[in-house]
């Protein structure tokens, strides 16, 4: 009796349990993906469709949201529109059909560029510093190592709102307010603690014998680090980079407080995309959709490293 129970739990899942499992997974996936689909679809609605009640499931797709996102427009009198030369491009035509003319490009491109520069820049720095520090903590006898590690962790304990004012004052004094450099430094500082802790775990898993073998074979410690340790640490570095990037990419509180123009990132920008008579929801949805893409691509690109596991294998027992 007992035996058959044990055997059952070890054996391949039955067809029925597989069906139940996939059913649960599919339901869960549908539930979680629904808001994303909603946002994606809203991006292709017209402003009236986007706020229609009951919500429209079937609608005629329109790129108005995207056009609105990338342009500034002004409403004109029909007489003035008559006097203009005919529209040259498809998007001018679309705008003209709403009795408006395009004033120029919107701020979305520079804001998006800010987000890219600040998020990737700070991620790169945090991962670099984190890797070096984690290696040092893992391999050398650092005086007061435990206290230092705790201190590094503690820098992340304060909620942003608690440190917002002092940081604002510091930034003002240093002339870093509303600069990309300031935001890169800030996000690096916040992320480096996470990076050190995550990467230290990965470094500890890499046997010292690898570097030692390389050093005996004629490599300096630094070269051994690059030739042997870094390739082993790619999994950890990839995972850490994704965590850091997601934080820096999505960060809202500091961004609202410290950026207003020049260095504004997407998170504070998106909610304030204004159309006629309030929020332009299709444009907001379009911005959100675009905002989602870099993180998605980055994660897909690094997935191979994430799934490759750590130093499994070449271990002599």
């Amino acid at each position: 009796m007992n035996l058959s129970v044990t055997a059952h739990s070890v054996a391949e899942p039955t067809a029925r349990s597989k069906r139940i499992a996939s059913f649960v997974v599919v339901i869960y996936a549908l539930v979680t993906i629904l808001p994303l689909v909603w946002i994606f679809l809203t991006g292709f609605k017209t402003p009236p469709d986007s706020i229609a009640y009951p919500p429209k499931i079937l609608f005629e797709p329109s790129v108005e949201g995207y056009v609105n996102l990338f342009t500034t427009r002004s409403r004109q009198t029909p007489e003035f529109l008559e006097s203009l030369p005919p529209p040259q491009t498809w998007y001018e035509r679309l705008v003209r059909s709403r009795n408006m003319v395009i004033g120029g490009p919107s701020k979305v491109v520079p804001r998006f560029a800010n987000s890219m520069i600040i998020a990737f820049g700070s991620t790169f720095l945090a991962v670099c510093f984190g890797t070096i520090a984690a290696y040092a903590f893992s391999r050398f006898r650092v005086p007061l190592a435990d206290d230092l590690l705790f201190f590094i962790l503690s820098t992340r304990m304060m909620p942003p709102i608690a440190v917002a004012v002092p940081i604002y004052l510091m930034f003002r004094n240093l002339g870093l307010t509303d600069t990309k450099l300031g935001m890169i430094l800030l996000y690096t500082a916040v992320n480096v603690s996470l990076a050190v802790w995550l990467l230290k775990g990965f470094m500890d898993e890499i046997p010292r014998e690898y570097e030692e073998a390389a050093m005996v074979d004629g490599y300096s410690r630094l070269r051994a680090f690059f030739k042997v340790v870094l390739p082993q640490a790619t999994t950890g570095i990839a995972a850490t980079a994704i965590f850091c990037l997601i934080f820096a990419w999505n960060e809202y509180a500091f961004a609202v407080l410290l950026t207003s123009g020049e260095a504004q990132t997407m998170p504070p920008f998106i909610p304030f995309i204004i159309g006629e008579g309030g929020q332009d929801w299709p444009a907001v949805a379009a911005a959100t959709t675009l905002f989602f893409i870099p993180i998605l691509l980055f994660t897909i690109l690094l997935r191979r490293h994430l799934l490759r596991g750590i130093t499994f294998g070449a271990v002599r027992k």
Binding site: A214, V216, G218, Y219
Partner: peptide, 29 residues
Amino acid sequence: VPAERDVAFVFQQYSLYPHLTVYDNLAFP
């Protein structure tokens, strides 16, 4: 430092670099 000593070491454990082929492992030194 070890690199200056002209010794070769066969370790009790963990001797091969998992990210390299056998050929590159042998070529490493």
